[in-house]
């Protein structure tokens, strides 16, 4: 029992650290990707190629003046960014970061907890995430912040439905709600290649819907209406400064990392990689390679997030709503029907 606890605590701390590190360097990557797409070089003065830039930004965030507006609700003003950050970090608990390691005569699973309702847990945490923005936006006592918060909440609720429906189709093919099992099922072989029967092959439309919704849930361009700077100043974080603003911005990048991890796990095989059982490597080595592959997939998705951000302009608000309700939800329903028919026919 105690050894089990120590394993878990080590794993939790490691996952926490890695998530924060990824979020930290996502800010750097974002600036670099933006610069490269716009034919610039981006930050390159702090350290070699500017790799110390995130640290400099962090120091700056900490040293800035903590300012709470006079008419703001003080308690809720502080609660907002905390809720944002907490919910952003909570999801990492159910993601299988790798298979299992055989160390010190025991098997250590690289998943913090394998809930039998893992997907729903992710979904629940995501749906709570909007409170951070709403509370922060309202507590600022500023019209722009409130508008940003309202936009965020209505956008999130609208896209959660399509996201849930696309997950239902996935659950129908996998037959389980546990993320650990879903990833394990994708280990099967296809065309003689082991570890390549990824869900994207069975659910391409579902993946597309899920990805679009993930963009919307993370408030990333083209869905960044809650903080659209040319209409709402800064959106929900207009009044925030110092590390509280840092928390809001950080939460966005953490969300991006986590949703990349979820997309990789649900649709792109998680820690599975092609030929994983045919190479004849030891179990531990395969696990380590698998985790590396998972992170490669995550980095790829984060790059996709940024690539899209620096390519597409922002939606208009009615376009956003029309897309959510009139396109994605019917599409997701059609996807469920097709999936159901195929399951019945193929069995």
């Amino acid at each position: 029992m105690e050894i089990f606890l120590i394993d878990k605590i080590v794993l939790i701390v490691a996952v926490f650290g890695i998530t924060l590190l990824f979020a930290l360097y996502s800010t750097y990557a974002e600036r670099k990707v933006a610069a490269f797409i716009q034919d610039r070089l981006g930050p390159n003065r702090a350290g070699i190629f500017g790799i110390l830039q995130p640290l400099a930004d962090g120091v700056k965030f900490f040293l800035k003046e903590e300012f709470i507006p006079a008419h703001a609700d003080k308690a809720l003003f502080i609660l907002g960014p905390s809720v944002s950050m907490t919910t952003a970090l909570m999801t990492s608990a159910v993601i299988p970061w790798g298979n299992s390691l055989e160390l010190f005569d025991r098997v250590i699973s690289l998943q913090i907890t394998d809930l039998n309702i893992g997907i729903l847990y992710v979904f629940a945490v995501v749906s709570i995430g909007v409170y951070g923005i709403m509370i922060g936006g309202w507590a600022s006592n500023n019209k722009f912040s409130l508008l940003g918060a309202l936009r965020a909440s209505s956008q999130m609720i609208s896209y959660e439905i399509a996201m849930g429906l696309s997950i239902i189709a996935l659950v129908m093919t996998t037959g389980t709600l546990s993320l650990g099992e879903i990833v394990q099922q994708q280990n099967g072989s296809i065309f003689g290649i082991s570890g390549a029967s990824w869900n994207i092959i069975y659910q391409p439309l579902g993946f597309l819907i899920f990805m679009i919704c993930a963009f919307a849930e993370c408030n990333r361009t083209p869905f960044d209406l809650p903080e659209s700077e040319n209409e709402l100043v800064g959106g929900y974080h207009t009044e925030y400064s110092s590390m509280k603003l840092g928390f809001f911005l950080f939460a966005e990048y953490t969300n991006m990392f986590i949703s990349s991890a979820i997309m990789s796990s649900l649709y792109f095989g998680g820690y599975n990689f092609p030929f994983m059982d045919q190479l004849g490597l030891s179990h531990n080595l395969v696990t380590i390679l698998g985790t590396t592959f998972l992170f490669a997939k995550i980095v790829m998705f984060i790059f996709l997030f940024m690539w899209v951000r620096w390519t597409l302009p922002r939606f208009r608000y009615d376009q956003l709503m029309r897309m959510g309700w009139k396109m994605l939800i019917p599409l997701a329903l059609i996807n469920i029907i097709i999936t159901g028919l195929l399951i019945v026919v193929l069995k």
Binding site: Q38, L41, W307
Partner: peptide, 21 residues
């Protein structure tokens, strides 16, 4: 159309940068 736009941006991603340090 979105894919077309993304192709354009990725082309710029790998272009030589004209910046003079």
């Amino acid at each position: 159309a979105i894919l077309g736009g993304m192709m354009i941006t990725i082309k710029h991603f790998f272009k030589r940068k004209p910046t003079i340090q």
